[in-house]
Design a binder for these strands. Structure first.
Lengths: 145, 145
DNA sequence: ATATAAAAAGACCTTAATGTCCTTTAAATA
DNA sequence: TATTTAAAGGACATTAAGGTCTTTTTATAT
């Protein structure tokens, strides 16, 4: 469904937000262990997310990653578009460059609604929402996230 | 949405079926030109589709690719699963291996319906259907497919 | 039979995604 | 202020996707 980079980013962010809710700032080692991703690669991804302004980081002892509580919630769309490009749900299903909303490519109509539904979903769902849902059942989260 | 290989496969098959409806067997040169794909790469893809039994081919003069008219219609799902793997719509949206229908991964519910809708669509839509739709407006097809 | 046309096969090449490792920078605290 | 801890940065390695090129096989028409 998504690139590994996107998956790892979403999982990292949800985990970071869950820990932030408990006033903790997890570091890369903890994060990658808990969400079961390659540490160095995950570090690169978080680096980008910091540069993009989605999260912040502090170096050194007691350092780690965290959301600025003053910022708005982060939608999945923000993250997904940032990593996969903002055109993933507007590109033609058959990859035709000339195909837009008015085009009659044979597959366009069929997929158009699904793509819209997907876009709506990722626009409305946020990291904070998902983290809240999961904080309610922490043991499960820690095993599965 | 799909891999290039899948896109090119679907476009090729639709084009082949349209030509078959006119009792023609297009060759790789014609196909790749008309659907605007790299010829050698498309040839490899068609080779696979022949091996998988989705289409047949004849070598030599007047050769080309064609559907066995005795076979059932080919669903998009047949092709997509064959190329991308049959788990693309059952895998967890966050890539968790432990996550199945009963799992409470934070993103699973949200995406579950969309994935089902997508699976339904590709199960019901066929190459033959799409080819018929398009044969009705051939000029447009030839420009855009 | 032979020339020709077209698919099959196999060996490559390129690029992007995924991932690792080592060094540098910065923060905290002992 | 020195040491420790952890993120940032940069270089590199691996794998998979995307793609090309040349040779071989097979069918057909002359």
């Amino acid at each position: 469904m998504f690139k590994k980079e996107t998956e790892y980013a979403l999982r990292s962010l949800i985990y970071i937000q869950i820990q932030n809710f408990s006033s903790k700032r997890p570091g890369i080692k903890e994060i990658s262990t808990e969400i079961n991703t390659p540490q160095a690669f995950t570090a690169k991804i978080l680096q980008k997310l910091v540069k993009s302004g989605f999260i912040e980081s502090i170096k050194g002892k007691n350092g780690g990653f965290f959301f600025d509580p003053n910022n708005d919630e982060t939608t999945l769309k923000d993250i997904i578009y940032s990593i996969e490009g903002s055109d993933i749900y507007s590109r033609c299903g058959l990859g035709l460059s000339t195909c837009d909303e008015t085009c009659s490519c044979p597959i366009h109509e069929s997929f158009s609604e699904i793509r819209k539904a997907t876009e709506k979903l990722i626009s409305e769902e946020t990291i904070q929402n998902l983290a809240k849902k999961k904080s309610l059942s922490v043991e499960i989260v820690l095993n599965r996230l």
